[in-house]
Design a protein around this nucleic acid. Structure first.
Lengths: 153, 153
DNA sequence: CTCCTTGCAAATTGTTTGCATACCT
DNA sequence: AGGTATGCAAACAATTTGCAAGGAG
């Protein structure tokens, strides 16, 4: 049901721009949606889509991710491991409009997602102070996770 | 004066770890310090250091940046243009202990630094809630800058 | 039928690594 | 002297691009 909605959103946006609705584009979005919690690289997505559609090329995955990102259907993030990662857009997913943050442990490199975002006030403040209209944000905290703190004590 | 202080910090940290104090390491830190406001790529830094020290190799720049980052003397950030950028560490620079955020315009790709950080409360909350000890953070806002908003109206 | 899109392979780009030499301490 | 660092070139990995063929509108 929700699935249907996101796909419909993509169809609309493509139509608006005069772009074509292709199997590949729908499949990539669907894989992202079905893996809501993960932070996937283009390669990850490529492999998952390949299961249903083995002819797909990696370049298409890159091109489509770029497109979906521009349409705000997916979010992008860098976790300092040298590759960009993607997840279904927080604006479309569930429609809560809220993203989460990432806690990155400098010792074990684990990435821990953290709750909801609590930045509404700050966003409002930025808009007032600078005229910059905030659409999205990405917040990462670096430090030591509970386990690594124990180890070094 | 401040310059001297940061360099001294590096010397100490190197000594502590039994690593050597080399011309290259000092120069790289110094270039970062003199370009406090910029977000420099390894290549940028390489070119600047080359002016004073043409024999330097790009690989050394990468190795040194990695080292300085581990020592918390420089900060790292990704601005979605496919390369990692560096700036002098907010912990050492001025000693305020506060970093700034970045506003990234999705239309013109401009990067606007934004004031001080206001995340102390959130950091404290995270530590209480999860046991994760926060040492640093990186916060980016995506949206439309004042100028681009005007254009699209 | 037209133009957008794709798959493939080659090209690019940012970053890392191996190794012999040079340099700190 | 002894091990660390460096410069160079080659290796790698992620991403992009050119192009002929295929597919949506």
């Amino acid at each position: 049901m929700e699935q249907k909605k996101t796909e419909e959103l993509l169809r609309e946006k493509l139509r608006e721009k005069g772009l074509k609705i292709t199997h590949q584009r729908l499949l990539i979005l669907s894989v992202l949606e079905q893996n809501g919690g993960r932070h996937m690289t283009a390669e990850d997505i490529y492999e998952l889509v390949s299961e249903d559609y083995p002819e797909i090329g990696l370049a298409t995955v890159y091109r489509t991710l770029q497109l979906l990102w521009e349409m705000q259907l997916v979010d992008r993030l860098c976790l300092d491991d040298g590759c960009v990662r993607y997840e279904i857009g927080h604006l479309v997913q569930g429609g809560s409009g809220h993203s989460h943050h990432h806690l990155i442990c400098r010792a074990c490199n684990r990435v821990i997602p953290f709750g909801d975002d609590l930045l509404d006030d700050l966003e409002r403040y930025i808009e007032e102070a600078t005229g910059f209209h905030v659409m999205d944000h990405e917040l990462k905290f670096y430090g030591l996770c509970r386990e690594c703190r124990k180890k070094t004590e």
